[in-house]
């Protein structure tokens, strides 16, 4: 028996050790740093208690940044999940060009977002960009997508959606293949022959766990929006596209205020943890009842 317990300890030791070194340890360091005034590269460090958190409550940039991040998540998550589901259903319905379409939708996921952001920057340029060229051709006024305070966040949402649809589509397609075909046959016998009722009675309920998973994953990814902001707008104009991760980056590596940035990361982690908690608790409960 004791040999068994020893084996358990021995066998889990590498995993536990790695988790301590790479997850728990850095997290504790981060939380500790958030109570200090540490400046990147500075020789000294001192404990300042809750001063960083206190400063955060009065910091306009942080307030705008959290607001923008929430708007971004609120737009990107529902739209990209709905479009991902739609694309998956359409591709799944037609067998002939399945491979082509799924590859085409998946391309933005595989492409490096930094490089794609630069391409978007060219396409959205108010003078030479393809998008404004098209707008003008149809008789609309050209828009300055990336420098107009009212537009910029929605432009970034659009790029975010473009990037996540393919990923969501793949998740949904995996979910669709897992639905046993007998269910559709049974539904057909019970009178559900049309696409709408088949979707409402079989597909959608069976996709519920996948949908929840997709929503949570997309939300976490949306919270982490950074590349497009850094490359295209730098948070501007005048903070209109400032998002949480970019603020953290600017504080830590632009102004070298690592203590303050660490406090911001703690706030960021609270958001991510809340989302992960939803996934764990709701999904696990769902498994037990089904």
């Amino acid at each position: 028996m004791t040999g068994g317990r020893l084996n358990v300890v021995l066998l889990t030791a590498p995993a536990v050790l790695l988790m301590l070194v790479f997850l728990v340890g850095p997290l504790l360091c981060l939380i500790a740093l958030s109570f200090t005034d540490y400046q990147l590269g500075a020789p000294s460090i001192s404990f300042v208690g809750l001063a960083n958190y206190d400063e955060m409550t009065g910091d306009d940039t942080v307030r705008i940044s959290i607001g923008n991040t929430l708007i971004y998540v609120a737009i990107v998550v529902p739209v990209s999940v709905a479009l991902g589901l739609g694309a998956a259903l359409l591709i799944d319905a037609d067998g002939s060009l399945r491979g082509f379409y799924s590859a085409a939708y998946f391309l933005p996921v595989m492409a490096t977002l930094i490089a794609m952001a630069i391409v978007w920057g060219f396409m959205l340029d108010p003078r030479i960009g393809a998008v404004n060229f098209a707008l003008k051709a149809f008789g609309f006024k050209p828009l300055d997508f990336l420098h107009d305070r009212k537009l910029v966040l929605f432009t970034l949402c659009g790029i975010g959606i473009w990037q996540s649809v393919g990923f969501n589509m793949v998740l949904f397609m995996a979910g669709l293949t897992a639905i046993p075909s007998e269910l559709y046959e049974a539904a057909a016998i019970d009178g559900a022959r049309r696409g709408g009722s088949r979707f409402a009675l079989v597909t959608w309920p069976m996709l519920a766990p996948v949908t929840l998973f997709t929503v949570v994953i997309t939300a976490i990814r949306a919270f982490q929006v950074f590349d497009t902001v850094q490359v295209l707008t730098d948070g501007g104009p005048n903070k209109a596209s400032e998002v949480l991760l970019h603020t953290i980056y600017a504080e830590a590596f632009g102004y070298f205020r690592v203590g303050y940035a660490a406090a911001l990361v703690v706030v960021f982690l609270v958001f991510i943890l809340a989302l992960s908690a939803i996934r764990v608790f709701v999904l696990d409960r769902g498994r037990q009842t089904s």
Binding site: T61, N238, K239, G254, Y255, R257
Partner: peptide, 22 residues
Amino acid sequence: GDNNLKIIQAIKDRLQTVIDKS
């Protein structure tokens, strides 16, 4: 002080609000 670079940005941000008439 240590916040030298951040102060430059803070001033620039406020100037921007005058320039964009907000």
